[in-house]
């Protein structure tokens, strides 16, 4: 049976390769300058993600939250017979995490808040904030960090962020677009959602498979 799949893949790829020649010469890009300015943005990608295709983005944020909830369900019941001893504090890692954490948070907030002006936006900013939390977890151990962060509150605020995002997006889809203030607030909410989701994934994985 495998040869069917192999031939199908080869046929599909050659079909795509043959089809790409219709992409040349490349057509002109549709004018994007005017609509982008209308949405109050300078970055056309941000204008599309949070303006023209806002429904798409809102529902993708929902898909993200659903997948994270699925991770929680799959790994929630798995525990260890013998809990691991806490991670010993390594001064070097701890100090460098302390020093680096501030800049990482500032950077991610800057990328989120300036997402409508230049490259950036809520999604990469959330991932950067998630990696910052990961760095802190490496230094302190996941369990201790989750206690210090009051994880239950954060998980609730994740659902709060989704609700706020949906409410904001729904309101502006019905009432018309107010401009860049919406873009900034939506980007910050998406950052929050993505970062908390990433942290929950890391925490549940670490709990099931051993400390980071």
């Amino acid at each position: 049976m495998k040869w069917v799949a192999r031939t199908a893949i080869l046929a599909l790829l050659s079909l795509v390769a043959v089809g790409t020649r219709h992409l040349f010469p490349r057509p002109d890009v549709a004018p994007w300058q005017e609509p982008t300015a209308q949405y109050g943005a300078e970055n056309a990608v941000a204008a599309i993600v949070l303006g023209a295709r806002l429904w798409d983005t809102l529902l993708e944020v929902l898909v993200y939250a659903l997948a994270i909830a699925g991770v929680k369900m799959a790994l929630g019941g798995l525990g260890r017979a013998r809990p691991l001893p806490p991670v010993p504090e390594t001064p070097l890692l701890r100090r460098s995490a302390d020093i680096l954490l501030g800049p990482i948070v500032i950077l991610s907030l800057y990328i989120a808040a300036s997402g409508h002006l230049g490259p950036g936006g809520g999604f990469p900013a959330g991932a950067i904030l998630g990696s910052g939390l990961l760095l802190l977890a490496l230094a302190k151990g996941v369990e201790r960090l989750s206690q210090e962060l009051h994880e239950a509150t954060w998980e609730r605020s994740e659902y709060g962020a989704i609700a706020a995002l949906l409410a904001l997006g729904g309101a502006f889809l019905c009432l018309g677009f107010p401009g860049s203030s919406f873009l900034v607030s939506a980007n910050l909410l998406i950052t929050m959602e993505v970062a908390i989701g990433a942290w929950v994934v890391l925490h549940y994985f670490a709990r099931a498979r051993g400390e980071v």
Partner: peptide, 25 residues
């Protein structure tokens, strides 16, 4: 560059991470 396909794949990358995490779970 055409901004529309770029905006499409931007969310695809994030969703890919979430579904991959689900699969690994």
């Amino acid at each position: 560059a055409d901004p529309l396909p770029q905006a499409l794949v931007l969310t695809a990358i994030v969703i890919h991470f979430a579904t991959l995490a689900l699969a690994l779970a």
